[in-house]
Each structure stands twice: as structure tokens, then as C-alpha cells.
Amino acid sequence: MVNSVLKVEDLKIEIKLDEGMLTPVRGVSFEVRENETLGLVGESGCGKSLTCKAILGINDKKCKTTGKINFSKDGSEINLLEMKKDSAEIRSIRGKNISMIFQEPMSSFSPLYTIGNQMSEVILLHMTKDKKKAKELAIEALRRVGIANPEKRYNQYPHEFSGGMLQRVLIAMALVCNPNLLIADEPTTALDVTIQAQIIELMKQLQKEYRMAILYITHDLGTVAQICDRVAVMYLGKIVEIGTVHEIFKDPKHPYTKGLLGSVHKIGGNNERLFSIEGTVPLAMNLKDRCSFYDRCVFRDENKCNRPEPCLKEVGKEHSVACWLYESNEPHEKEGI
């Protein structure tokens, strides 16, 4: 068994709104193993971004988070959720052991400081107190992500870079402290398609070099196939199916996953109309006590499915699904993954 870097158990996030309690994440459990890339896939609003921000404890104050987020640091497991929001403890993990890159490279930097300033800030925080050394490390990191003329670029401001270049800088900054886990929150969404491919290539190559685990969040199944080892599919704040990329793409079980794959265009496929899932994601508020995909499901069975929500259940090696269609009729206890 491979060691896991991160274990999330029964993560719940609640936000109190005037209209009622919103529960965008409703009990999510998964693990990220050493050296692997786990894809977290789902439509916008399914709670994937909140989940990964919760890992670093950088969610908005309004979010009430419960559950467990166990991170293995130097061989021992620590629960990140127990740490205080701005404690030195969690800050020493952010950017050092767990790094994160975001959707919009353009707005991920403060426009008022040079790239170099912001990069060496992280290095000075986690690696060394020597400013000269920090600069060297930063320039080296820039070079490794393929930035030409890094000495000059070091002194430039974010607005002097293109989007793709900035995403490279962001990756360089995330990797400069040799993290064990990189959380990438839709890192290619804001970029051109050709640049997307370059960035994904770069991440794959760097993963090998740095030997780290990646938690890759996206709504784009195409990139999942390119970079991930395993995939977790999220719907309405819950993981509905999890398995290896191979399994999920070849033999999707959950009606939602089938729907998602049906809406991906295949090159060389026949000219059928693209399949789309009917309806929209409902608001995670005042939900009925039954399978949350029930109303949109094309395979629903009134006798089987009109019941409280199903839990993840193993259906194959490294493959679990939460769907009543794959269950015998007896209710079961909750199982780990």
C-alpha cells in the first residue's frame, strides 16, 4: 500500500446565509497518495474549490468547517483543521509543505510588487533568511519552469508578463519550497488551449522532478485524462464516484459520471449530438432526504432510488460509487474508501 500524503475525512462546510444554511460541501472523504495526481472533477458550484481551500484553512470566515484533514508531515499525521486560522503552525505548512496555484494567474499576484519580491518573500519565510540566497533560489525556480532570462524577469512586475508566463511563475513560486502536495485549482482554465497543454506538460514533468502529490481540481475531463492517476467526481458537495482514470473513463458507473463523459467531445467519434445532463445543479440548501441527483438522473428507479442518500461503495478494485443502482436493497453502514 502506498502512503497517503493527505487524508480528508467527512469534510463538511456550512455557510450561514440569510435565506438559510447553505451546505456546499456535505461530507467529503478522499486521500491523496504520494507521487500521484488525484483529479477532483465536477460542475461549477459543486464545492470542489471550497474543499481545497479548506485544506489550507484559507476559506472565508463565514465558512464553518467540520471533519478531519490529516496531512502527513515528516512521518507523523497532523489534523490541519484543528489549527487556528492564522497560527504560525498552519502558516509554516502553507507554501512550504502544501502549495496552491489558482485559476487566474493575473490576479494571483499583487500588482504593486515585483515577481521577485513576491517570490523571495515565500523563500525567506520557509527556506532561508539569506536574501541573496533567496534571490538565487527564485531565479533558479524561474529557470526550471522555462522562463527565459529569469534574472531580468525577476525584477519585473506582474503586468509585464503574459497569462501563460505568469502561470509558470506561479508554479515556480509554488514549487520553490519543495512541497509534498500541490493543490492546483483549475490552473489552466483562464489560459489559451495551446498554453494549457504546455502548462500541463510542465506540471507533469515537474511532478517527476520534485516527487510530489498533486490534487488537481478541474471541470475539464480532457485535462483529467492527461494528467491524473485517479479521479474523484463530485456532485453537490459529495463525491459520487472515485477510481483510477482508466476505470472511470472506461467503465463509469454513476449516472452523473456517465453524463459528464457523454458531454465530452471525442476526436474521431461519430457525429452524434453531444449528450448533456438535464437541469442545473440545485442549491445546496433545504435538500430533500434522498439521492441528490434523483431529479436529474436518467436512470433513476423509483423503487430503488427514492431513499436517503447513498454512500460510496466499492464496485471494483480502486473503484467506488455512491448510487443505489449498484446496491442490494438492504441499507448499509457507512464505509471508508
Binding site: I58, R91, G95, L170
Partner: peptide
Amino acid sequence: PYVLCTRARGVS
């Protein structure tokens, strides 16, 4: 967004 990003880097 950059505030979130900077916070994620461990800046106090």
C-alpha cells in the same frame, strides 16, 4: 484573489 493566494503561501 491575490490576498487568498498570498495567504496560501504562508504569509501572515
